[in-house]
Nucleic acid binder design. Structure first.
Lengths: 211, 211
DNA sequence: TTGCCGTAGTTGACACTGTCAACCAGTACT
DNA sequence: AGTACTGGTTGACAGTGTCAACTACGGCAA
């Protein structure tokens, strides 16, 4: 079970030609299903069936449904984090602009793969359920911290940076998720992405004004 | 099916002594289960069983599982909204203080009944799935708008108030939900409720500084 | 060679779920 | 007296996650 970490680590090297090991094929197909099916309706049996393997095969590797879903969330989240990192690095070095780029990437993530996002950052799985998920979540968080850190005036403690990072993440997460699930009343005229930018600017301004 | 609205309307009048009609008893027991069981694991059959009625009885009234869950969410959300209203009215008339009180009540809601909150404001049910839910959601939203409206300087349009209301809600919703599901890394030292207050103050300041 | 053991995978069963369809008891209305 | 509607039951069905026992097979030691 532990050596799967090796598999995901050498993941970038030999993709493509070589046949993926079964756990990876299962996860890949589950991610595909997750594009249209919410996680709670995803059937492990059907994934196994589509891969062409017995209904019990996934449980040989992952133990139970939750662990499997956690692995799926891990792989999916890793690629989302990578895309966000690219998006951030593509814009200028202006911290506020990078903050907006990060937020936009997050909105893009939640909009293009809402079920995956809900799985990773919802109650279904815990971060400790699978090492892949834990690693991906930490990686994504580090990106957040880096961007938010660059927005701070000098003299702000490391802990306070993390605090503010959590606030900004919560803001983006909340607006984007309420939006994607159509919980924002139609009496709200503004585009959620723009509301988010305005609110982020308010946070940014508050951070700089504190000193 | 439509006359259930009457039932929920006269809900405050004859509670207690009189025997509740079956749909209400089912919903009440589902809410009870929801205190410990996440919505996606809630079994309609078991609810029916515990009420002492056949496994199909709930479907006579609610049609399918989703509609039943929507009704449950509606009743639950209505009482949460009422509690929030009381909490807001209990503090002084200072708008910022009321904003904080509203946010605190929201945090209290999500902390005391996370599964109910997830059900109401998650993807499982849509607002239109049951009139009870729709009514409760609108009622709660009106409370939000009222509180946020009082925070605005003169001259802000109605639409902009709704925009800002959505932002503030998203902020509170996001931080509280990330927190309750333990998605915030332990490297964040601050209490989420306090982070929320600070962030809300930044929004508030931004609103007033605009003019 | 033989025997053994761990890994990867299969097969079959079990209890439980939501949903469909047919049925039945009243009760109100014509 | 008959009829239609409401509220509820019973029985079946396919699909689910999980448990347990079994098989195939490569490595390895005696």
């Amino acid at each position: 079970m532990e050596l799967m970490v090796d598999i995901v680590n050498r993941n970038g090297v030999d993709q493509g030609t070589e046949e993926l090991p079964l756990p990876r094929r299962l996860v890949a197909l589950a991610l595909e299903e997750l594009a249209t099916t919410p996680a709670e309706k995803l059937s492990v049996r059907r994934v196994a069936d589509r891969v062409g393997v017995s209904h019990q095969a996934p449980y040989v590797h992952f133990g139970d449904r939750r662990t499997f879903l956690a692995a799926v969330a891990g792989i999916g989240l890793a690629s989302a984090a990578e895309r966000a990192r690219e998006a951030v690095e593509q814009v200028s070095a202006d911290p506020r602009e990078r903050l907006h780029a990060l937020a936009d990437a997050y909105v893009d993530f939640i909009r293009s793969k809402p079920h995956l996002h809900d799985l990773a950052y919802g109650p279904t799985v815990a971060m400790g359920d699978h090492p892949w998920l834990q690693a991906a979540a930490i990686n994504y968080w580090r990106l957040h911290v880096g961007v938010v850190h660059a927005c701070q005036p000098p003299g702000v403690t490391e802990g306070e940076v993390h605090n503010r990072c959590a606030s900004a993440w919560g803001l983006v997460y909340g607006i984007a998720r309420l939006d994607i699930h159509h919980k924002i009343p139609r009496t709200v005229p503004g585009d959620p992405a723009l509301l988010m930018h305005a609110a982020l600017d308010a946070l940014y301004h508050g951070w700089r004004a504190d000193i």
